[in-house]
Nucleic acid binder design. Structure first.
Length: 205
DNA sequence: CTCTCGATGCGCT
DNA sequence: GCGCATCGAGAGA
C-alpha cells in the first residue's frame, strides 16, 4: 500500500552523484507513517556529502560502524545521533561501496501539521521542520530507522517538483567549519526565499 | 536584531 | 577526553 497516489522513489534515483540527488530531492515529499497516520513534508533544503576527499563527510576517514550505511545500498536511510539529543536523516547515494549521502535539512509540513506543531511545541508551521534536527523531531525519525530502505513504509520519499516561480539556491554547507575549504563547496541546495528553509547562515556570508 | 552558551550522548583519537 | 552535519533560551544593543 503506497501513501498518496504516487510511488516512492526507487534505487536508480539515488544511485547517482549526491549533489544531483540533493538538487532533485527539492520538492519531493517525505512520508512518515506513524501509528496509522501519514505525516507528510515537502523537502526544501538539502546538503550533499561526497565520496573521496570531502573533509565534511563522515566517511572521509574510511568505514566505521557508524558510517557503514553510507557504503551500503543507495536509497536507504542513514540516521545518526548528534549533540547528545538530535537525530539527522540522510539518504544514501551512489552505488554500494561508494560512500555518499544527502542530508535532509528542512521541509515544509503538508499533512498532520497540527500534530507536528504540538510535538515540536511551536506556534507556526514554518518552525516545524526548518532544520535537520527539527525535521526529525517533527516526523518522529530516530536511529531506529537507520538503514531503512526509503521505498517502503514507514518512511518513504515520493517524487515531487518545484512549483511555478520557485528557484533553486546553492551555497556552502552549514555547521561544517571543521572541514576547512570543503565547507565552502557549493553543496547546499534550497528553494530560494522559501519560508521553511533553515535560518542558520551558511559558511562564508 | 545579534551573539553566547548550555544541554547531553556517543564516536573516535 | 574532545568535539560534534543542532537548537533554544537569555542577554545586550
Amino acid at each position: 500500500m503506497q501513501s498518496g497516489c504516487s510511488r516512492a522513489l526507487q534505487e536508480d534515483f539515488y544511485a547517482r552523484p549526491a549533489d544531483r540527488v540533493a538538487r532533485d530531492l527539492l520538492g519531493c515529499r517525505l512520508v512518515r507513517r506513524w501509528h496509522g497516520v501519514d505525516l507528510v513534508c515537502r523537502i526544501v533544503e538539502t546538503e550533499a556529502y561526497l565520496p573521496g576527499r570531502d573533509a565534511a563527510s563522515h566517511a572521509n576517514r574510511g568505514r566505521t560502524v557508524r558510517n557503514a550505511p553510507m557504503f551500503g545500498a543507495p536509497g536507504q536511510a542513514y540516521v545518526y545521533f548528534i549533540y547528545g539529543m538530535y537525530d539527522m536523516l540522510n539518504v544514501v547515494c551512489e552505488k554500494p561501496g561508494v560512500p555518499a549521502a544527502v542530508l535532509l535539512r528542512a521541509a515544509e509540513p503538508l499533512q498532520e501539521v497540527p500534530r507536528m506543531q504540538r510535538w515540536r511545541r511551536v506556534r507556526h508551521d514554518w518552525q516545524v521542520a526548518n532544520g535537520p534536527g527539527k525535521l526529525c523531531q517533527a516526523m518522529r525519525i530516530t536511529r531506529v530507522l537507520n538503514t531503512h530502505p526509503l521505498r517502503n513504509v514507514p518512511l518513504q520519499i515520493v517524487p515531487g517538483k518545484l512549483r511555478h516561480g520557485e528557484h533553486v539556491g546553492v551555497s556552502g554547507r552549514i555547521g561544517v567549519a571543521y572541514a576547512g575549504q570543503d565547507a565552502f563547496l557549493p553543496l547546499r541546495f534550497f528553494i530560494r526565499d522559501h519560508p521553511h528553509v533553515s535560518r542558520v547562515r551558511p559558511a562564508g556570508r
